[in-house]
Every structure is written in structure tokens, then in C-alpha cells.
Simulated scan of single mutants.
Amino acid sequence: MVQVTIIRLIGYREWTESLGPDREHIIQRVQSQLHNELINVFSRLMPGPTHLGMITYLQ
């Protein structure tokens, strides 16, 4: 079975622009934390081997 999950980030551009010019490291850290949390949630919902190597966020 294949499951596709699409996550839409509302206000993403405004949020990134509000961080100022030196923001890339903050964006990368937050995206990494979000990715880890999604992997934890999906792992609890679907135990067993799963492939979560690619999560795409819509802006």
C-alpha cells in the first residue's frame, strides 16, 4: 500500500521573511524538527518498515 501525505505550510513565506537576512540556518533547523516529528507520528500510526525519506512541503 502506498500512502501520500501532503502538508501545506500556511504563511511560510511571511514567516521566513520575518526572520531577517541571516535566516537559512533557522529555517533548516525548524524543517528538520518538523520532519523528525512527522516521522515519529507516522511510525506510531504505521508500525513496521516504512519509507519516509521524502516529505514535500507546499508553500
Score class of each variant (00 low, 15 high):
Met1Pro: 06
Met1Glu: 10
Met1Cys: 10
Met1Tyr: 09
Met1Leu: 12
Val4Glu: 05
Val4Arg: 06
Val4Tyr: 14
Thr5Val: 12
Ile6Thr: 11
Ile7Cys: 07
Ile7Phe: 11
Leu9Val: 12
Leu9Ala: 13
Ile10Met: 05
Ile10Pro: 00
Ile10Ser: 05
Ile10Trp: 05
Ile10Leu: 09
Gly11Thr: 06
Gly11Phe: 09
Gly11Ile: 03
Tyr12Arg: 06
Tyr12Leu: 12
Arg13Lys: 14
Arg13Phe: 05
Glu14Lys: 13
Trp15Ile: 02
Trp15Thr: 03
Trp15Arg: 00
Trp15Phe: 11
Trp15Asp: 05
Thr16Phe: 04
Thr16Met: 12
Thr16Cys: 06
Glu17Met: 06
Glu17Asn: 04
Ser18Tyr: 05
Ser18Val: 03
Ser18Asn: 06
Ser18Leu: 10
Leu19Tyr: 08
Leu19Pro: 02
Leu19Gln: 13
Gly20Phe: 09
Gly20His: 02
Pro21Lys: 15
Pro21Trp: 08
Pro21Ala: 15
Asp22His: 02
Asp22Trp: 09
Asp22Asn: 15
Asp22Tyr: 13
Arg23Met: 09
Arg23Lys: 11
Glu24Ile: 05
Ile26Met: 04
Ile26Leu: 04
Ile26Asn: 02
Ile27Asn: 05
Ile27Trp: 01
Ile27Glu: 03
Ile27Met: 03
Gln28Met: 08
Gln28Val: 03
Arg29Lys: 07
Arg29Pro: 00
Arg29Tyr: 06
Arg29Leu: 09
Val30Phe: 15
Gln31Val: 01
Gln31Trp: 01
Gln31Ile: 04
Ser32Thr: 13
Ser32Trp: 08
Ser32Pro: 00
Gln33Asn: 08
Gln33Trp: 03
Leu34Arg: 09
Leu34Trp: 07
Leu34Asp: 01
Leu34Ala: 04
His35Thr: 14
His35Arg: 15
Asn36Gly: 09
Asn36Pro: 01
Glu37Lys: 15
Glu37Ser: 15
Glu37Asn: 13
Glu37Trp: 09
Leu38Ala: 07
Leu38Tyr: 12
Leu38Thr: 02
Ile39Glu: 05
Asn40Met: 03
Asn40Thr: 08
Asn40Lys: 12
Asn40Ile: 00
Asn40Val: 01
Asn40Ser: 11
Asn40Tyr: 10
Val41Ala: 03
Val41Cys: 00
Phe42His: 06
Ser43Phe: 02
Arg44Gln: 07
Arg44Asp: 04
Arg44His: 13
Leu45Glu: 08
Leu45Asn: 13
Met46His: 09
Pro47Arg: 14
Pro47Gln: 14
Pro47Cys: 08
Pro47Met: 11
Pro47Thr: 07
Pro47Tyr: 15
Gly48Phe: 06
Gly48Met: 11
Gly48His: 05
Pro49Val: 12
Pro49Asp: 15
Thr50Ala: 01
Thr50His: 12
His51Thr: 04
His51Cys: 05
Gly53His: 10
Gly53Trp: 12
Gly53Tyr: 06
Met54Ala: 12
Met54His: 07
Ile55Tyr: 01
Ile55Lys: 00
Thr56Cys: 03
Thr56Glu: 07
Tyr57Gln: 01
Tyr57Lys: 03
Tyr57Ser: 04
Gln59Arg: 15
Gln59Met: 13
Gln59His: 14
Gln59Asn: 10
